[in-house]
Amino acid sequence: MTDPTPFASMDDVLGTAEGWLTEGRKVALATVVKTWGSSPRPVGSRLVIDGDGAMVGSVSGGCIEGAVIKEAFEIMDGGAPRLMEFGVSDEQAWDVGLACGGNVQVWVERMEA
C-alpha cells in the first residue's frame, strides 16, 4: 500500500509549507479567519506562498489572492504578521474584486523554519 489518500494531498497546504521550509524556501501562510456574507472559502481555508510566487491552496475564489500574495512577499521577508480585510465596503478591496459581495479577513504570517 502506498499513500492512502494521494488525491487529498492537493489540499494539504500545511504539508506543502513544511516541504518548502525544508527546502530552505521563504514561505508565508494566509489563513481565512473570519467571513461575512457570501464569501467563497470558509474560515480555516489556507494559501501558502513561496518567495518565487508559487502558491498552493486558496483564500477566495481567486479574487483576492493577488493582493494577498503582494503582502505575503513583504511579510516573508521579515515583516510583521498582518490581518487583511476585503469586502464590498472597502474601496481597495472592490478594486481587487470580491465579486461575491462577501467580506473576508485573512491573517498573513511568515512561516519560520
Binding site: L14, L29, W107, E112
Partner: peptide
C-alpha cells in the same frame, strides 16, 4: 508561525491528534 509550534502542529496532524492552533491577532 513559530517553527517549533508548526513542527508540533504537523506532528499532531500526522498522529491524528485533535489540536487547536491559537493565534493572538496582535501577532505576539
Amino acid at each position: 508561525m513559530r517553527g517549533d509550534i508548526f513542527s508540533k502542529l504537523q506532528t499532531a496532524r500526522r498522529g491524528k491528534t485533535p489540536v487547536t492552533l491559537v493565534d493572538g491577532l496582535d501577532g505576539k
